[in-house]
């Protein structure tokens, strides 16, 4: 595998903390995301990975800390504003538009990045996105499903669509929360292949939370290990694999 990464940080996460009542879900988390890399985020269930994503993408307001995109502090921006400026995401549980076709799901995901709101009112309904969207559908091998209602797809296909929606707008960084969660073994290889492909060929930068160790170790250039809301360590897959602390978190605690 070619893992080419240059060293310019696109996203800078600093001291993010979030408390729910007496539960410190995220505790002073900092890391950088470098352009062109796949950054894995792992950790036992309930260690705050999804909460961290919600803080970074604006669904939750963190108690403390900031996130910078290309040197601009976006901590006070609304989720749609962050999305429009290149921070895309998926949620841990499947989130697609079930009553819309696969094609429309992807167009929705792409359209807000084009033109101003006023111009969008007067643009053709397809907004010239047809080619781009169909390419992506083709790559995800869903061409025969393009006009199918998303709600009628199999779970694995829906999961793939969800991921595609985060990436169709070519975001600066895509945050994927368990893209392989619940996906069966046959589809799994497919998901892995698509993500690698998007990274290698399109230079997509991604932060991926994943439970499936094999999956994430194969994909990520770098991994952040979280435990009880804190960053336990950060390193290459090999470093992480061989770190005694990580072994303890996974075998000891839970």
């Amino acid at each position: 595998m070619t893992k080419t990464v240059d060293n310019e940080p696109v996203v800078r996460v600093r001291n993010i903390s979030k408390r729910f009542g007496g539960n410190q879900a995220v505790d002073d988390v900092s890391f950088d995301v470098t352009k062109g890399e796949i950054l894995g985020v792992i950790g036992p269930n309930g260690c705050g990975k999804s909460t961290l994503f919600n803080c970074l993408l604006g669904q939750y307001r963190p108690d403390n800390g900031s996130i910078e995109l290309d040197g601009i502090d976006v901590s006070d921006w609304s989720p749609p504003r962050r999305a429009k400026h290149g921070l895309a995401r998926t949620f841990q549980l499947l989130q697609i538009f079930e009553t819309m076709s696969v094609r429309d799901n992807l167009k929705t995901a792409a359209q807000e990045h084009i033109g101003s709101a006023a111009r969008r009112l007067f643009m053709r309904p397809d907004m010239g996105l047809d080619g781009e969207v169909d390419d992506l559908i083709e790559r995800f091998r869903m061409a025969h499903l393009a006009d199918e209602l998303a709600g009628n797809l199999s779970y694995g296909q829906q999961k793939l669509l969800d991921t595609a929606m985060a990436l169709v707008s070519k975001p600066a960084v895509a945050f994927l929360d368990e893209p392989a969660g619940g996906v069966n073994l046959t589809m799994l290889a497919d998901v892995e292949q698509q993500i690698r492909d998007l990274n290698v060929h399109d230079g997509a930068t991604m932060v991926i939370v994943e439970h499936n160790m094999e999956f994430i170790f194969a994909l990520a250039h770098r991994i952040v290990v979280m435990a009880e809301g804190r960053v336990l360590m950060e390193g290459t897959p090999d470093e992480v694999r061989n770190d005694p602390r990580v072994v303890e978190v996974y075998l000891g605690g839970h």
Binding site: L57, P80, M100, L121, S169
Partner: peptide, 26 residues
Amino acid sequence: IVRSPWGRALKAIRDNSGRASSLGVD
């Protein structure tokens, strides 16, 4: 309005507004 991209955005909001918002739909 309904057939323009606005219509698609409105439909997405009705279907799943949290997801729509995370994709840049204000």
